[in-house]
């Protein structure tokens, strides 16, 4: 029974990673940049939802929608102000700017909400489900998380495969110049990618803090790094890859925590990542890049 309960916890944590990883992977796919500020957008989303429920007494669903709206605007503004002028600059310059944005968001959060941790109340105030006479306990949060992850995955796949905008985004990620020649507005495509990624980050923030209810200005950074590894793990730039990578990473983390060592769990997660990358250098579902001389 502990095995099954660990598995469920792993899938649930992995789903959160997967949702965050989707943001990383989409932005990487289309703008070829590592958006290090993504983890901090998660934190902002969680804080907004926290404020909406605690101070404004809004219902949880409304608070999530509000967080998504704020994060979407935030993502588009960040992209427009900080990343857009650097479209043609070296990737390292963009990376450092993203780090600057990350510092900026953390410190603004520190000024607004202070460094004292806030206790996040779960968005689904229901009791856990006990199965097999109390041997297996499944929290409602984990069910909501997994369902949300699957829904997001389906919607996102439909969006990129069926809609005009989604097809345009895929074209831009394939070849920016050719897409532009075909009449696709590259700038709008990139903005929309950031908007979607940031909205997903808000959802991930709320789900993450529902499961682990301590909220501080640096809440987003470690899950951010892990989700980023998950994106690389599954093959960065690939949407199903982010899903597979995230869930595998979550399962590995929970299993190593309960069977090997709590303190070493992060090291084990990263060690698995290294082994995977050495065997398959572009990740599990990544495309092989041909090199031209």
């Amino acid at each position: 029974m502990t095995f099954i309960s660990n598995l469920i916890n792993g899938i649930s944590l992995g789903s959160v990673y997967a949702i965050i990883a989707l943001g990383y992977t989409m932005v990487y796919g289309i703008a070829k940049m590592l958006n290090f500020a993504h983890g901090d957008v998660i934190m902002v989303g969680a804080y907004i939802s926290f404020c909406a429920t605690t101070y404004l007494n809004l219902p949880p669903v409304v608070s999530v929608l509000l967080a998504m709206a704020v994060c979407t605007v935030l993502g588009v503004v960040i992209e427009g102000l900080a990343y857009k002028p650097l479209r043609k600059a070296s990737s390292l310059a963009v990376l450092i700017t993203a780090i600057g944005v990350s510092y900026f968001l953390q410190n603004v959060a520190l000024l607004i909400w202070g460094s004292a941790p806030k206790t996040f109340s779960s968005i689904v105030p229901l009791d856990s489900i006990a199965l097999f006479g109390g041997k297996l306990i499944i929290t409602v949060e984990s069910i909501v998380t997994v369902v949300a992850c699957i829904l997001i995955m389906i919607l996102l796949t439909l969006f990129t495969k069926k809609t005009r905008m989604g097809k345009g985004m895929r074209a831009v990620s394939e070849d920016k110049d050719a897409a532009e020649l075909m009449g696709i507005n590259v700038n709008v495509s990139i903005s929309v990618t950031f908007a979607i990624g940031s909205a997903l980050a808000a959802i991930a923030g709320v789900l993450l803090c529902s499961a682990y209810p301590v909220l501080v200005p640096t809440t987003g950074s470690m899950p951010g790094i892990k989700a980023f590894t998950a994106a690389v793990f599954g093959g960065i730039g690939s949407i199903p890859g982010a899903m597979v990578g995230g869930i595998l990473l979550g399962i590995i983390e929970i299993f190593s925590k309960s069977y090997i060592s709590t303190a070493l769990s992060d090291a084990i997660v990263f060690a698995v990542l290294i082994v995977v990358l050495l065997v398959k250098p572009t990740g599990i579902l990544g495309k092989k890049i041909m090199e031209k001389v």
Binding site: I96, V101, Y103
Partner: peptide, 21 residues
């Protein structure tokens, strides 16, 4: 209280000033 914030802004501003089109 604002020093790390200023640091972040300086960092972004320098990167934009030296690298943008």
């Amino acid at each position: 209280d604002y020093r790390m914030l200023v640091y972040a802004i300086v960092l972004i501003a320098v990167m934009l000033a030296t690298n943008s089109e």
